[in-house]
């Protein structure tokens, strides 16, 4: 039973990766399979927000990531969709160890990737993505500038390189992804504008700013390795997440290195609602 489940799961993933190169040999449409990964990680982060302090704060970060990938019907089924939800929290300190900053950020992105099959084992995916981010940084020592709110939306370009190979007949999947925001909008107080002036007195002038590569040179990079283990697939990831901005004369950066581990599942979506109910484990 376990072997059968494993074989089906791997077949789904293999089909997603080699779509267009091999003939369909199963009767279920490819866009009914969802590749879902849930990962937890720990890493190091460096935070600068000149609204709070000119010093860079460094410390540990915890990160959660949930990813869904599935094929779509767009462009004859050559486009996949990807959603990534991330949440991370960090506790950092300055070099002198006299102050701390606590930060957290939630982000959700949606990407569409067109598949370019370069060889049976290697393909490139590329396409647009959109992302929404929200969070804050809190400095434990400051007076009327204790915290900075983070709220920004981006549209950008996303690319993936996927390589599948074998070691001792074990199928492995190596993937590199790069997301770069190209245009967006961001909330930012002016250089030394207090949140009292924005929220109590209602002065929102210049607080919403347009962003692009010139004032928000950022990138999200992810390297993953999928390894089948027993009846599951483990995913090992390294994430280099770079958020930078220079808006309203406030300089910010967050450089995060996270090592993550999680499980990958391939889920079959049954479209017909009658079949959904009739196949429900609750009826067994």
């Amino acid at each position: 039973m376990k072997r059968t489940v494993f074989f089906v799961a791997f077949s789904c993933l293999y089909s997603i990766l080699t779509w267009g190169q091999t003939e369909k040999n199963d009767s279920v449409p490819q866009n009914r399979f969802v590749n879902r990964a849930t990962m937890y990680g720990i890493g190091l982060t460096k935070i600068l927000d000149s609204y709070l302090s000119p010093s860079e704060y460094k410390g540990m970060e915890l990160r959660f990531l949930r990813e869904n990938i599935r094929m779509t019907n767009i462009m004859d089924g050559k486009v996949s969709s990807q959603t990534i939800f991330q949440a991370h929290a960090a506790y950092t300190k300055n070099d002198a160890d006299t102050g701390n900053e606590i930060s957290t950020l939630f982000s959700w992105s949606y990407a569409l990737h067109y598949h370019f099959h370069l060889s049976p084992n290697f393909k490139i995916l590329a396409g647009p993505y959109g992302q929404a981010n929200g969070g804050f940084i809190y400095n434990t020592r400051n007076s009327n500038n204790p915290a900075q709110g983070k709220a920004y939306i981006n549209l950008g370009a996303s690319a993936m390189a996927i390589y599948n190979f074998h070691i001792n007949k074990k199928p492995l999947l190596l993937r590199y992804q790069l997301n770069i925001p190209l245009a967006g909008i961001m909330f930012s107080p002016e250089y030394q504008q207090s949140y009292y002036e924005i929220f109590t007195q209602g002065n929102w002038k210049h607080v919403i700013q347009l962003t692009s590569l010139h004032n928000q040179p950022s990138a999200f990079q992810m390297l993953t390795l999928d390894v089948p283990m027993l009846s599951s697939t483990m995913r090992f990831s390294y994430i280099l997440d770079i958020h930078q901005s220079h808006v309203n004369q406030i300089k910010c950066h967050t450089y995060s290195h996270s090592f993550m581990i999680g499980l990958v599942k391939n889920i079959l979506i049954i479209k017909n609602k009658d079949k959904q109910i009739s196949r429900s484990p609750l009826l067994y």
């Binding site: 000119p54 010093s55 006299t98 102050g99 400051n142 007076s143 500038n145 207090s194």
Partner: peptide, 19 residues
């Protein structure tokens, strides 16, 4: 002056009138 805070490389905190 509504005061803000900043800090020095040695970690000392400074408060100053900002707005």
């Amino acid at each position: 002056g509504l005061p803000f805070s900043s800090e020095l490389p040695n970690g000392w905190s400074v408060r100053f009138s900002s707005s």
